[in-house]
């Protein structure tokens, strides 16, 4: 199954074309400087390098956030439009699931982080067991200090927000923390996670699929200064 993945929720815009587990072509670009207006050009470039046309794609995968709200809206709209107009399946994948997927072989607790502004992060907790992941704490938003204080065992952090909050996290958790970087494989992770669901027929509705903003938890967190779950 050929899956075209689009994730524009974070610092980098990813477009990845995979045939099952094999990557046919991919591109990643810094999303600064309004690169979103070129998203169709990025998609076109990836398809050309793979020697394929849009109609050859069997299904579409899109990153639904949390992350940049504008970025999420653009990527999601493009993916849904392709799926609807070509009558192909679409599958939405959360940024946090995709980041955690990259750390699935690490063992122990995995905490993906996405910046939410004003010292806040979007996060979730997963346990990595036998190279698989079990979600232990649902998507939430709140101050990074509050999140970190709630973790009482060795943990791996991954995501673009990690670097910004590295000092705070290290100060609070000390040597039981490991950092896995920004998560440059999340474009592929979106594709892989979508494929898992698509082959089981668990795609999303191309009209109803919505962003995962975590707006209400973020508003509660901003108001109360606490972690709030979705």
């Amino acid at each position: 199954m050929k899956v075209l993945s689009i994730d524009t929720a974070g610092r980098y815009d990813f477009v990845v074309l995979m045939q099952d587990a094999r990557i046919l072509a991919e591109t990643a670009r810094d999303s600064a400087n309004n690169s979103l207006r070129d998203i169709i050009i990025l998609v076109d470039g990836v398809l050309r390098r793979a020697g394929l046309a849009l109609r050859d794609v069997d299904a579409f995968a899109v990153g639904i956030g949390p992350g940049s709200w504008t970025g999420v809206r653009v990527g999601l709209t493009v993916g849904k439009t392709f799926a609807f107009s070509l009558d192909k399946p679409v599958c939405g994948v959360s940024s946090l699931d995709a980041l955690a997927y990259e750390a699935r072989g690490e063992g122990g607790l995995v905490c993906p982080l996405v910046d939410a502004g004003r010292g806040n992060v979007y996060a979730a907790l997963y346990r990595s067991v036998n190279a698989g992941l079990v979600k232990e704490r649902d998507y939430s938003a709140g101050p990074v200090e509050v999140l970190v204080r709630s973790i009482a065992e060795p943990v791996v952090f991954i995501g673009e927000a990690v670097e910004e909050h590295r000092d705070t996290i290290t100060e609070l958790l000390g040597p039981q923390v490991r950092f896995l970087g920004e998560g440059h494989g999340r474009g592929r992770a979106v594709g892989s996670l979508a494929l898992d669901r698509l082959i089981r027929g668990q795609g999303d509705d191309s009209l109803a699929l919505s962003p995962l903003y975590l707006r209400d938890p973020l508003a509660r967190a901003l108001g109360a200064g606490e972690m709030a779950e979705s």
Partner: peptide, 16 residues
């Protein structure tokens, strides 16, 4: 009307 509506309009992005 409230913070939730402001977040919907991506006020955070404008501030940054």
């Amino acid at each position: 009307d409230n913070l939730e509506d402001a977040l919907d309009l991506d006020v955070m992005e404008y501030l940054s």
